[in-house]
Amino acid sequence: MSVLARVFEAAGLATVCIAMVREHVEKVKPPRALFVPYPFGFALGKPNDADLQHRIIAAAFQLLEKPEGPILADFPEDEIPDVLPQSSGVTRNGAQSTADAADEIAGLRAFYERWVEEHDGRTAVGLSGVSQRRWRGLVRFLEAYARGEEVDMKERPADVALPQFIRYCVDDLKAFYYEARMAQKPSTSEPDLHVWFWGETVIGQLIPAVGESMQASEDPAAKAVAFGLAR
């Protein structure tokens, strides 16, 4: 981000950027950067807090009035603690589940639909291009992949390699589950959402298994993709 700011500024555009990692911005030296003390994913502070977002933006825009730079200013606000539970850090609730992930999805569908309705049709689901009517088949595909079988789906575009396609599928499943859960239990904190997903859902058990199967591949690109599924 701060490298792009330099490129744009050199081309004759005035830039100001939001910076997440102070140590990186100090090295890259973009012209005008506002450092914010929030975790990745929270660049403008908090979701649905327009006042805070406006205060951050106003602080960034003030830097445009400075006569010279580089300027690295701090947004003076309390930190949001950086807590992001990952699969390996979450204890599974009980034994390995033998329940069917496809049934689990069916059980969450009403909550997912409520989420979409409450957000004027907005959903983060959609990267894989696999219609939700085909998700029972998607689950079978991922289960077979996790068992090491050679499988594919007809929805995979020819120019998207299988591991990358799987990552889009997994991202769609994650978005569906989190959105459904946020509709089901709106008061859930962010860490609790992750603990629920990795610790209590059947899909949160299947995704690390898919990742392990991909990790076993000889292909370095597949390994890179696997790292982003679960860890």
Partner: peptide, 23 residues
């Protein structure tokens, strides 16, 4: 849509409000 599918950040804020990354 966001295809920055990294698990290095919490996606839930952006699920809730796109403005938190793209105002």
């Amino acid at each position: 849509l966001q295809s920055h599918t990294s698990i290095g950040f919490d996606h839930t804020a952006i699920y809730r409000d796109l403005n938190v990354t793209f105002p």
